[in-house]
Amino acid sequence: MAAIYKRELRSYFHSMIGPVIVAVLVAFTGVYFMAYNLNAGYPYFAYTLSGALIVFLAIIPILTMRSFSEERKNKTDQLLLTAPISISKVVLGKFFSMATVLLIPNLIFCLFPLIIKAQGNAFFLVDYTSIFSFFLLGCVYISIGMFLSSLTESTIIAAISTFGVLLVLYLWKGIMQFMPSSAISGLVGVIVLLTILVSYIFQMTKNWLISGAIEVVGVIASIVTYIVKSSLFDNLLGNWLGKLDLTSIFTGIVENNIVDVSGLVLYLSIIAVFIFLTIQTIQKRRWS
């Protein structure tokens, strides 16, 4: 793992992608910092960070697009997969190297509250927690981008699809307002989600029996539940999917000074899920 981590990190800083990402993120945040904190005199650095969140949409796809698609295109994955090292270590090595690239600007951000302090009052606890949460959210985005990169051989497709997914996540709160709230739409939503899950299971296992059985049992169970107690499905979609509003966990710290621990756990779980999915995708490709 250490070998891959070191190689990846070196590669990011040889190829200018690393420095450019650090520079863009710091410069953009610097502009917001000047406008909000220095000019307007607002003492919270966290607020500045929430403005910089949109930069992730542009830089994370560029950071993650090459991670697996390029290896596959250049056939260098043959070296990694025939070396005496497990796939999970390859994936973790790559993930940590990308996280390290993202960590560098976040470490620089740690200086900004000190500058505010030099000018007067600063709120260190809020600011540093928000920097930590900002970094963690970036890692969630990295894990998603890495997974999408492992699905394709083209870096361009990897970048664009990552951008699309991140954009949807960024606008999640707004999209959720359009979710229908009636019980029947909740039922339909549950069945659609179930079908997506089952089709993924079928893709991975190629087993009609298991995936078919899960689908049938799931559909029957939801319909029976709907008939017995339809109120359970009221507003279900909005409630469930609303929990996936990742940015609000970060902005919650900024706006209300509330740290949502369950939200941070959700961040970590999503990272774990996408790392797992990346490993599975690579494993699966060996067998197809």
């Binding site: 070998a3 590669s11 040889h14 250049n74 260098t76 990694l80 005496p84």
Partner: peptide
């Protein structure tokens, strides 16, 4: 399976570490 952005020595060092 070569990483073209590496030097020969660096590359072999990486492979040695990998192995």
């Amino acid at each position: 399976p070569l990483y073209t952005d590496m030097k020969v020595e660096e590359y072999l060092q990486f492979v040695a570490e990998l192995k």
